[in-house]
């Protein structure tokens, strides 16, 4: 693992290294803030009902319900950072922020549990709902009732009252809808990846919102936080450079260019950048074998005629697919006839 990392680092071009340092710095600052937020968490498993009427966010993190509004700009800033600097693909524009606020209202562990079970139930029910050909509003309405149903079921399971506001319920319903739309558009794997991104982003935003830094800023003055983040978002919103994810996406350009430059400078030099080419790679890039034409009629011998003969290969033994070489290491010539022109027949 470490050797692999070192190899990647040695292969990295200067273009990749600089943004990497910036990314590491941003990641480090975020990690510190998240760490502060986690350290600030008094009890992870507290259920809202055990808090005797005190709001969840206040009981666990000391964040007053009236100050819930104050952390919203901070969430918006993080969403903008994730989208236009890091290039994370997540559901919706500010959905991760809304999910984070919903988590703040339900609790650090119960929030994800409620969200995941709502999405799961939504996933199971949506196919049959779509068959009913409902409008979007009707669909969302049914989802809301279903999520409330899930909450009631959970209350019965845990034998407590969860006390969830209307807001998290709506957020959960929107999540289910987004997830389903993305699934239909891109397929299961990209949708799952996006959902995972959204979830992680929401958790990060949640803990940054309740870190000592954010709480101290809110306590100092109610004006400080919105003004501070407005300026920061204004600067970040004008960012026109490459996103970190795009550095990864376009890195092959720099890698290949450097390899070409090295090769032209010294043609004998081994390609240090690349791992040795395996037989699989060679086979994948080789042009298909010519020959093996099936000639059914004289018209097939007409020059320029396209011949494509499907030749299903049924594997009967492993050795069939092994490359065969002669004593000098050259590939063997197969003894099929190669017909290139009409004269060969």
């Amino acid at each position: 693992m470490i050797a692999r990392l070192r190899q990647t680092w040695e292969r990295a071009t200067p273009q990749v290294k600089r943004p990497f340092y910036v990314g590491i710095t941003v990641g480090f600052v975020l990690a510190v803030l998240v760490g502060l937020g986690i350290a600030n968490t008094d009890s992870f498993f507290a259920l809202p009902s055990s808090l005797e009427g005190v709001a969840t966010s206040q009981a666990i993190w000391g964040l007053k319900p009236s100050n819930l509004l104050m952390v919203l700009p901070l969430g918006a800033f993080l969403v903008v950072l994730a989208r236009s600097f890091v290039g994370v693909k997540a559901f919706g524009l500010f959905t991760p922020m809304l999910i984070a606020v919903a988590f703040l209202q339900i609790g650090p562990v119960m929030g994800p549990v409620v969200l995941c079970s709502s999405v799961l139930v939504g996933m199971i029910v949506t196919p049959s709902l779509l068959k009913l050909r409902m409008t979007r509003v009707g669909f969302l309405g049914v989802l809301i009732s279903l999520i409330v149903l899930v909450l009631v079921a959970m209350q019965l399971i845990f034998d407590v009252a969860l006390q969830v506001d209307a807001f998290p319920v709506i957020v959960c319903a929107l999540c289910v809808e987004r997830w389903w739309k993305q699934w239909g558009k891109d397929g299961a794997k990209p949708a799952a990846k996006m959902a995972f991104n959204t979830f992680i982003l929401a958790v990060i935003i949640e803990f940054v919102m309740v870190s000592d830094f954010a709480l101290a800023l809110i306590e100092a003055s109610p004006l400080l936080m919105p003004a501070f983040t407005a300026v920061a978002i204004g600067i970040l919103g004008r960012y026109r450079g490459l996103r970190l994810s795009e550095i990864h996406r376009f890195a092959p350009i720099w890698l290949e260019r450097r390899r070409k430059a090295r090769l032209s400078a010294n043609p004998d030099q081994l390609e240090l950048d690349l791992e040795p080419i395996t037989d699989e790679d060679r086979r994948a890039t080789a042009p298909p074998l010519e020959g093996m034409w099936v000639i059914d009629s004289p018209a097939d011998l007409h020059p320029g005629r396209r011949r494509r003969v499907p030749q299903p290969i049924i594997p009967n033994k492993e050795a069939q697919f092994e490359p065969r070489f002669d004593a000098l290491g050259r590939p063997l010539k197969h003894n099929a006839w190669i017909i290139r022109s009409a004269q060969d027949v």
């Binding site: 273009q15 290039g87 795009e246 720099w254 260019r257």
Partner: peptide
Amino acid sequence: LDGVDEILGINMRNA
């Protein structure tokens, strides 16, 4: 012009 600057990112494209 070798560098990050030669690539058009999605932010710049949108701009």
